[in-house]
């Protein structure tokens, strides 16, 4: 009967690299803790990378989702300001230019990850990536 009953769905969780103390390797090989990362670290790493480029993604809307603990964030992405909506856990951290880690529910992010976090707001410009050779 154990085999007959499917396992319970695992609760959605955040990737381990957002946990305070996680070691992140920059493109030049330098190691930093996730909580110590600065905007320049991402910009310089993208400059070194032969494949990846930094995109600016501006938060245009933040709505609650029908799925508990999730939010729907609408971004204007890149130079063409493509409209992209993503559904994420409310504690999912985005890196805001000049500000650092931010999420829809910073208290929950800090509680779960011990990662210092600010409130993500409409108008914040987040770091996202695109491919350098993307037409």
């Amino acid at each position: 009967s154990l085999l007959a009953t499917p396992p319970p769905p695992s609760a959605p969780s955040l990737p381990p690299y957002f946990t305070k103390g996680s070691i992140i390797q920059l493109a030049d090989g330098e190691l930093k803790r996730v909580e110590d990362l600065k905007t320049e670290d991402f910009i310089q790493s993208a400059e070194i990378s032969s494949e990846l480029k930094i995109d600016s993604s501006t938060v245009e809307r933040i709505d609650s989702s029908h799925t508990p603990h999730f939010a729907i964030i609408q971004f204007a992405v890149g130079e063409h300001r493509s409209q992209v909506s993503v559904e994420v856990l409310v504690e999912y951290p985005f890196f805001v230019f000049g500000q650092g880690w931010s999420s829809c529910c910073p208290d929950r992010t800090t509680q779960l990850l011990e990662l210092p976090c600010a409130k993500l707001s409409v108008g914040d410009v987040c770091i996202s990536l695109t491919l350098k050779n993307l037409k």
Binding site: P15, P16, Y17, F18, S22, I23, I24, Q25, L26, A27, L31, V34, L37, D41, F42, S45, S49, L52, D55, S57, F75, V77, G78, S82, Q83, V84, S85, V86, F94, F95, C126, I127, S128, L129, T130, L134
Partner: peptide, 25 residues
Amino acid sequence: NVEPRSVPVFPWHSLVPFLETSQSN
């Protein structure tokens, strides 16, 4: 006798999303 413990190292680009997709809506 402390056993050496391997510490995971994550690449910088795993931390930020790819949002520019062809399926932009």
